[in-house]
Each structure stands twice: as C-alpha cells, then as structure tokens.
Write a protein that binds this DNA or RNA. Structure first.
Lengths: 345, 345
DNA sequence: TTGTAGGCGTTATCAC
DNA sequence: GTGATAACGCCTACAA
C-alpha cells in the first residue's frame, strides 16, 4: 500500500516521462551519449538515478540481436586449472564488457553438446570450449547461430576452430628428455584412460612417441591407465613399483596421479626422489607443498583464459583470430625428481 | 549462395508456415501440448525437426517475464568446496529445468554487489548467494526485481534471507572438544583474517568462544591470523611452534592452513601427530592424501548445492523455504590428530 | 538534435 | 481447438 509505485521496476519510458523527453532520447543517452544535447543529457541522467532505472538486458538483447554474453563449456569446475583459467576468462571478458555464462559438461560429450545448445538458445554471442572433442555438430550448430567459437587448452583443432592453448605432447616430450638427461632409463607411466579427453590423450600419445624416438621400449607392465583420481594414482604406482622394481622414474599425466604416487611411496617405504623420481602435470597449487615438492608441468591457465577472451572478442569485432595460439609450458623442477638411485658419479 | 535459406535461423513463424498452422498453434505445441489436436501436433513437430527449429530463449524470456535462469555469486571458483557445491547446484537446477549463471566475486563485496546487479539485469529468476556479508543493498535490489534470494554455507542470515548451510561455530567447538577429549591442553590456532568472510569469522569466533567455555585462556601469541594460503599456513605454524613450543595441538580454520602446517612440521623436524596434532576445516580432496592424512571438518558442499537448488525453485513456485536449514558437519578423524606427546598412560 | 513508429521472437488473451 | 492480436522493453531507421 505504501510504495505501490516504487515496487515496480521503472522502464525506459518511465525515465523518458520523468525527464520530459522521448524514449528514444533516453536510449541515446544510454548508448550514444555523444549525439545528445548536454542539458537534456543531464535531465535524463538525473531521472535515471532518481528512479533507479537499470536497462533490461533481456529486452535489449532481443532488440539488438546480441547479448554481450559469452558462453563457456568446461569439463569440470573441480580442477584448479580450469577454475583458474575460467576465472581469468571471466575477468577479462568483463573488462571487454561481456558477461560470461559458465556451463560444465562433467567430461561428457553429449552433455557438452547439450550445454552448447542451451547457451546458444540463450543468445550468447560467442562460445569458448575446452579441447577438441566436440562433435562437428557443435561447430555447425554455432555456425547456424552465426556465433564465433574458440577452443582452449589445446593447440589445434580438427574443425578449423581457432585454438589457444598448449602443446601437451611436446611438454611431455620435454619431461622425458629432462629425466633422460638426469640419467634415467627405467620408466613407468601413469596416464588417464579418458576416452573423451583429448588433452590427456595428447599427453599420453606424446609421451609414447617420445619414448619411441628415444629408442626406449616401454613394456605394457610399465604403463598404467586409470581414471583420474588421487587414489587411482596410488594404486597404479603401487602396481608399477611392485611389478617392475627396476623403475627409477614414474611420469604421471596429471598432478593428481603424482600426488597419489607420492603418498603411496611412503607406504611402500620408497624414498622420493632417492629411490624413484615422480613427475606430474598441471602444477596445481598443492604441487609445491607436497613432500617432496612435485616436479611438474605448469599450464598457463590464466594466460589461456585471458587470450581466449581477447580472441573471442576480436572475432566478434570482425577480426580473425589466429588459427593456433600456442602458449609455452614450463617444467617446474622441484624436489620429486633427481638422478636415478644407481647412478655412481 | 548455396544455402541462403539454411543460413538463417528459423523462427516460430517459419515453422508455422511450413506446417500450415498459425504461430499460436506452434507455440502451444511447445508449451501446452495437451490442448492441441494430435494430427496438427504431428505436423508441427515434423516441421520443427525438418527446419531444425529451436526457440529463442531471449524472446521467450521477454514475453514471459521470466527466464528459467538462476544466478549464483560465489567468492571464487578456485576452492574445491565451492566448486563442488556449485556443480551440485547446477546439476540439480538443471533437473528442475533451470540454467545456472555463475559469477564470482573474488571475495570482494563491491564486486559481489556488482555481479548481482548484472545478473538481475540479465533477468535471472532467482539468486543464490554465499555467506551473509552481502550489503542490505543486494537484498533490497533483489526485492525490486521481485526475485527470491537464498544464501548458502551459513546457517542464518541477518537479512531474513533463507539460508542453507552449516553451523561453522558449532563445528569448531566440536573440534576443540575432540582434542580436549584426547587430552590436549596447549593449543595454537591459525585463522583467516578475512574481513569480508563471515564463514571464516564464524569459525574463528566459534573457536574462541569454545575456548572460553572450556576455561582455557589463549595467549595472543597462540593465535595466528593470516590471509588464506598454504604458504601462510606454513609461516604461521612455524611462528606458533617457535614462540610457543609447549603447544600440542594446532587448530586451523581451513585445510589450506593445515596442509601448510603439515609441510612446515617436516622442516621443523616435528612429527605429526606425535609431537603436535593438526586439524583443518573443509575436507578438500587432498586432505585424505596428505602425510599424515588430515583430521578435518567435512563441509557437505554437494548437499548444500542441491538443497539450495530445491529451495530456490520452491520459492519460485510460491512455497516459502525454511528460514534456516542447518546441515550436519562431520569431523573426519584421520592421522593428523592423536593424544598429546606428554601423555603417560 | 529530437520524436515517432515499427520490429526483435515469443506468449497469452481474446474471439471464432 | 485454433487463429488473429496485443503485449514484453528496448533500439534504430525515418521523418521532422
């Protein structure tokens, strides 16, 4: 009864009436401030603050045909790499005047496609994906909506989608080289089964190829393929070291595995890195605080997020982003890697 | 040139024309399938799949006045507790037919308010917040938009906003009781300075109150207040144990601190739990894989997310969610806690 | 420079 | 049961 009027949200026409101008003028003040007389402008602005007016983004989007919104579909919020990358993406997009809509696929491609559809129907102006496992359906769908797409964390796309990320295979190769330089010759590896995860696949494949090139044959008993989890890292490490005690270095395709390996090494009475070296991949926050600190591959997630933002916005402005933006990875040399135990200098 | 027609997204009227019915009928098939004749329905559906039509959610939202969208503002994506809770929230909301828009505030209340505004302007139907530090501005803003709000991870709100969460103070009290039962009398605590974080504040206050009630005076030198980070946990632990060597138990207000404490204990040559017990709070994934495994308080994040979803949807349907939904916390008794060193049985 | 009017795609209220 | 029609709130030709 008291605030009957104030209880309803003011619309643009209300502002117009309050300011004694036409709705068009209010709209202009909001969107093209340059072309309206200063005095009118002042009156309008005063009315806006007085009424507490805020434009309706939905109506605006319908009218404009664009929403100043970008959608991102990431596998999971639970991995710090994605969490950090997404935060950076959001931050940067915001600086460009865009709002980020986040969806997650739980590593399920069907669900990923589903989320993409929802995002597209909601009118996002652009799409940021992770990896390159999206079916071509996703790409053509985005095409129908005439929405630019960009993919992240990988360095190339089979669907001609611009990619900004890292070369997972190359990084793995460098890890192996580093261990070889240290003198290691007996290896074990723990990788992710991940049927739908091309980053993990690239890491695994890159590693196997690197072994090939190095002329090292890796017996099947030295390859552990398990689902992503610290616990699986533990059991895989135990199996590896039990069946192949000569192993002096275990390369893991993620920090989770490596952290599990470190935990299990204590149970097994193995000292890292004296008895066996362990390396990870991702460089999550925890990696530098394990015992010993973990040697791992740093993924420049924040940089990827920022660049993805810049590129998608560029595409929206008619620029054509480079097909491939490969960011450098860095091997963080920490305590979990050292020369093999039987090295006599 | 080839696919001039297919390049434009079909609209509802296109479907209508293709099916030889009116737009209204197509709309009915989509929203009230019950009231349209089966044969027409079939024709319409065929036309829909043939044209690959998908409704425009933006236009729909404008017409309906609601968007089937819920906004959530969380402090950060980088904490596993929030990541897990948000994933569960999203999942459950999805089951209810809603899409979750995620924004993060980086623990900044100004930014939180800002994000809330953006979400509201984007037309979210409901708002899920974290904690109770939102200015009343946020609440009244939501009121203007006539949008229900719910807050999470705390068990009560000063703004009469329904809350679903845990009793942080009570949990801390139980941690202390547990350690007292173990025989500890000399304590140190590491808590977050966090001026804008009421969860941390509740934990700290709950702990201090519990000490009071237990009749234990905690010297200022036994209280470390530092910003959230593993590294700060390390330095705080070092300071505590250096200045007050009699301490037999260190209670941390987050796992990050505790993990730092464990790391530093090795450097200091202190054995956990033999020389000193350490407890955390949050029960992040890593907690069960530290050395020793960390005794900590489990936060039912997924449950909070699910219930938050249920409650906000309920509110949207006219139900009134309970003012307070307090979920139980569980103390995860693991290897980092044990009787004090000087206990002679 | 400012006002008028039509349209963005969808839904709901009317008559039929 | 189905078809016209008027909104939803905003933006941008177009006219003045």
């Amino acid at each position: 009864m008291t605030d009957n009027a104030s209880h309803k949200r003011p619309k643009l026409s209300d502002v117009a009436r309050a300011a004694g101008v036409s709705p068009a003028t209010v709209s202009r003040v909001l969107n093209h401030p340059g072309i309206v007389r200063p005095d009118l402008q002042a009156k309008v602005r005063k009315a806006i603050t007085k009424l507490g007016y805020a434009p309706d983004a939905v109506a605006r989007a319908l009218s404009l045909g664009r929403s100043s919104t970008i959608g991102a579909v990431i596998p999971t919020l639970g991995m710090t790499v994605f969490a950090n990358g997404t935060a950076a993406l959001q931050q940067r997009l915001r600086e460009h005047g865009y709002t980020l809509l986040i969806a997650n696929s739980e590593y399920d491609s069907d669900r990923e496609l589903e989320e993409i559809k929802v995002l597209l129907e909601r009118g996002v102006d652009g799409l940021v994906l992770v990896g390159d496992m999206v079916s071509s359906a996703a790409v053509s769908l985005a095409g129908q909506y005439d929405v630019p797409v960009i993919t992240t964390y990988v360095n190339e796309s089979q669907f001609a989608v611009p990619a900004v990320g890292i070369d997972n295979a190359e990084a793995m190769n460098r890890v192996l080289q580093m261990l070889l330089d240290l003198g290691h010759r007996e290896f074990g590896i723990i990788t992710d089964v991940a049927p739908h995860n091309d980053r993990q696949r690239a890491r695994r494949q890159g590693l196997l190829t690197a072994f090939d090139i190095a002329g090292i044959a890796l017996a099947p008993t030295r390859i552990a393929e398990v689902p992503y989890s610290v616990t699986n890292g533990r059991t895989a490490f135990r199996k590896l070291m039990t069946m192949e005690p000569e192993i002096t270095a275990v390369i893991c395709s993620s920090d989770a595995f490596a952290i599990g390996a470190l935990a299990e090494s204590r149970v097994l009475g193995l000292s890292v890195p004296r008895d066996v070296s362990v390396t990870g991949y991702d460089d999550v926050d925890m990696s530098s605080h394990t015992d010993p600190p973990l040697t791992t591959v740093n993924v420049p997630a924040a940089m990827i997020g920022r660049l993805a933002a810049d590129h998608i916005v560029a595409a929206l402005n008619g620029w054509v982003p480079p097909a491939t933006t490969k960011l450098p990875t860095q091997i963080m040399l920490r305590g979990s890697s050292a020369p093999p135990r039987n090295t006599e200098t």
